[in-house]
Amino acid sequence: MKDILYNCRKATFLIEKKNLTTISVREQVELKIHLAACSVCKLYQQQSSFINQMVKKHLVKEASQIGSLDNHFKEDLANKIKVKMADEDH
């Protein structure tokens, strides 16, 4: 118990784990106590969630904003495929 109270390494580890899966009841209690006393880790927790939120909002959905392939590349690729198809036929 004393360990987690002062250990920010362990607290931040639990914050990340808790974001993605369930942590044990004991770990939940330890983390809660640590966060009540540690404003730096509280800030870390906020920033970590904010980063996750930005990843979801701007990186995951970004595909729609990426430009399409240029036509030159596409024609070239289509030709390569045709050549390969012809090879397979023989």
């Binding site: 595909a63 990426i66 392939l69 495929i81 198809m85």
Partner: peptide, 18 residues
């Protein structure tokens, strides 16, 4: 396959770039 580039190239490219 002759239609792959037309039909899927942009979609797959975006999928990969992300």
């Amino acid at each position: 396959p002759a239609e792959w580039v037309n039909n899927y190239a942009d979609f797959l490219y975006k999928y990969a770039v992300v």
